[in-house]
């Protein structure tokens, strides 16, 4: 079962727990006060759309990014292949004695910068891969954190349900519920930050940048209304944390794009424009200077 399925399963369980507690409250109040016609409807209204609160997290699908990552890996492997290095090395070692303006242009504008340009290109491909991976990690972590959050909510609601045996018992149960909630909050803390995604995204300058959003949530309440309020805050907090992480990712991507637009380097052109028989007519065999022993 996927995380998405688990989130919706737990969402249903949470909704049912809220409803059962509401029913229990209704029964208790019926025993001590005359029920109003729509009292039950009003009692369950705050919990009617509990499931929907979790749907956005369930709809995330980190696995969708895997094919993209695979193809970007192919791109990197192709760019980084030894065949390219070998071919350029063969060109360098075999073209040793060609001199003159054309040769100089070829070496200065093409051969010399090529390796550096290729390294930048591989680097850039790695950045694209990391950005997709980061997007995937954010979604995956949010889903995991949502599941943790749901476990905490279920635990708290079960405690409330367990203690709600009657109107007077309920008053007695408040402290216990709070205690259980505090325990749940500690449990969130002890497993580390609720949402902590550490990513190192390397900008094209080579400067390492990291995404690190730390986030923890607590679900608490002495009654269902308070639980639902703190639950909503926790869900919103999780969503806000996700937004902040994406904002950081966007910032890094924007910086990379700016750098590319500013520094875009392509090996070539001057050399291509100045071929000897087109530009200056200096196609002179003297521009090839073989080693002295063979001249």
């Amino acid at each position: 079962m996927s995380n998405s399925d688990d989130i919706m399963t737990k969402a249903v369980e949470i909704q049912e727990l809220f409803m059962k507690i509401a029913e229990s409250d209704f029964m208790v109040e019926c025993a001590y006060a005359a029920p109003a016609g729509d009292k039950f409807s009003r009692l369950i209204e705050p919990y009617a759309d509990v499931i929907e609160r979790f749907r956005w997290a369930a709809e995330l699908d980190p696995g969708k990014y895997d094919p993209m990552l695979e193809h970007i890996e192919y791109t990197k492997a192709t760019l980084d292949s030894a065949e390219i290095s070998d071919a350029m090395a063969r060109i360098r070692t075999r073209l040793t004695y060609w001199e003159g303006n054309t040769a100089k242009d070829f070496v200065d504008n093409f051969l010399t910068p090529f390796d550096g340009v290729r390294i930048r290109q591989v680097f850039l491909a790695e950045n694209v891969r990391r950005a997709v991976q980061a997007t995937r990690d954010i979604e995956e972590t949010v889903q995991r954190d949502m599941l943790e959050l749901q476990d905490g909510i279920i635990e708290v609601l079960k405690q409330i349900k367990k203690e709600e045996k009657g109107f007077f018992d309920k008053l007695m149960a408040v402290a216990k519920v709070v205690g259980t909630i505090a325990g749940a909050a500690v449990a969130f803390g002890s497993m580390g930050p609720g949402l902590a995604i550490g990513l190192g995204l390397i900008a094209t300058t080579g400067e390492a940048m990291s995404l690190q959003e730390t986030f923890s949530v607590t679900v608490e309440g002495e009654n269902p209304a308070e639980v639902v309020e703190s639950m909503d805050k926790a869900i919103n907090g999780l969503r806000d944390a996700m937004t902040r992480e994406e904002d950081k990712l966007i910032e890094i991507l924007a910086e990379d794009i700016t750098m590319i637009d500013r520094d875009r380097v392509e090996p070539v052109p001057d050399f291509v424009c100045r071929r000897p028989d087109v530009a200056d007519g200096v196609a002179d065999l003297e521009q090839f200077r073989p080693p002295p022993s063979t001249r």
């Binding site: 970007i72 791109t75 760019l79 340009v117 290109q121 850039l124 491909a125 950045n127 694209v128 950005a131 997709v132 997007t135 994406e246 904002d247 990712l249 966007i250 991507l253 924007a254 990379d256 794009i257 590319i260 637009d261 875009r264 392509e266 090996p267 070539v268 052109p269 291509v272």
Partner: peptide
């Protein structure tokens, strides 16, 4: 919201690689 930025970076890389191949 990440999508247009990521696409922007990937597309630029693709253009650069295409240009290099052509060059």
């Amino acid at each position: 919201r990440v999508y247009p930025h990521l696409k922007g970076l990937r597309d630029r890389l693709q253009e650069v690689l295409g240009d290099t191949s052509w060059n």
